[in-house]
């Protein structure tokens, strides 16, 4: 009986640590999909891109992947601005976002994946960090640092985004963009500009989350797809456009996956997020916190 309690505790800890990381992956989707109504299904592709950039720099110079990702995040920000401009001009302004906009992002996702395959091949890549192999033990419970470090940085990032959105003028403009564009215009704020910058922010968070990913597990180009369901599941589960909801959704999903891996075997884990997503969409589309 003792063993199963430890197993249970470890599954809970692993689930929570994993959930923190999922929040980092999904916070960008909460912004782009939840607040701006831009259905960026290519979001995971930018996470993987972030992983590979962290990998290259780590491989060549030995820098810490998470530090690298923070340093290069302005590049992701710029990339996000460019991408949103294209999206706005080609789809949003013409009112074609629902079909062609989706296809556009799907194409971007696909191109990124195939380009990475062409450059790096389909082998798994990993990074070396000082904390990668360290595990801190408290009794029977393990805190693997390769999960705990991304968890801590991720929490900092997600809470930072939440504070930024609720406490700054720009942040409130982002929250308003979904609800009342006219009021924004009257205040002299250009909604398109607000969306552009907010979208750029969402891509920047994806880049940083990519570094977490490659610290946690080896990465190859095609695994991005598996995270599509995950990030949308978290976003929908938590209720669209709420950062705190996203945190909650991420923990629920982290726990669900951790339990599934522990008790049914890891090969079933990918189905959990998508299964939860399907179930949420079918039975509770307003999310856990929704009415």
């Amino acid at each position: 009986m003792e063993i199963s309690t430890a197993l249970l505790l470890n599954a809970i800890i692993a689930g929570l640590l994993l959930g923190g990381f999922y929040a980092a992956m999904s916070v960008g989707i909460s912004i782009s999909f939840g607040m701006l109504d831009v259905v960026n299904i290519a979001h995971p592709a930018f996470i993987i891109l972030g992983s590979y950039i962290a990998y290259i720099v780590n491989d060549r110079f030995g820098f810490d992947p998470i530090v690298v990702s923070v340093v290069v995040s302005p590049l992701f920000f710029l990339l996000g601005m460019v991408l949103y401009r294209i999206y706005y001009v080609c789809f949003e302004r013409r009112g074609q976002e629902s079909l062609r906009g989706l296809a556009f992002f799907f194409g971007i996702l696909f191109i990124t994946e195939v380009a990475l395959v062409l450059i790096f091949g389909v082998d798994y890549r990993m990074v070396s960090t000082r904390y990668g192999d360290v595990t801190w033990r408290a009794g029977a419970v393990d805190f693997p640092m390769r999960l705990a470090v991304p968890f801590l940085v991720s929490m900092t990032m997600v809470i930072g985004v939440q504070v930024f959105l609720t406490r700054t003028f720009f942040g409130r403009a982002v929250l308003a963009v979904a609800q009342d564009q006219l009021a924004l215009r009257l205040m002299g704020v250009d909604p398109v500009r607000v969306k552009e910058l907010a979208f750029a922010l969402s891509i920047a968070t994806a880049g940083v989350a990519g570094a977490f990913l490659i610290v946690i597990q080896p990465v190859q180009p095609a695994i991005g797809r598996e995270f599509i369901g995950l990030v949308f599941a978290v976003c929908v589960l938590g209720g669209m456009g709420s950062i705190l909801g996203t945190l909650l959704g991420a923990f629920v999903l982290g726990l669900a996956e951790s339990f599934t891996s522990t008790f049914f075997g890891p090969s079933w884990a990918p189905a959990v997020s998508f299964g939860l997503l399907l179930a949420t969409l079918a039975f509770r589309p307003s999310g856990l916190l929704g009415r």
Partner: peptide
């Protein structure tokens, strides 16, 4: 639901069935 949810759900279905 809104059309985009159908799109996301269809993607999810592919992964669930694959697993």
């Amino acid at each position: 639901l809104r059309g985009v949810f159908f799109a996301i759900a269809s993607l999810a279905l592919a992964v669930v069935l694959y697993v």
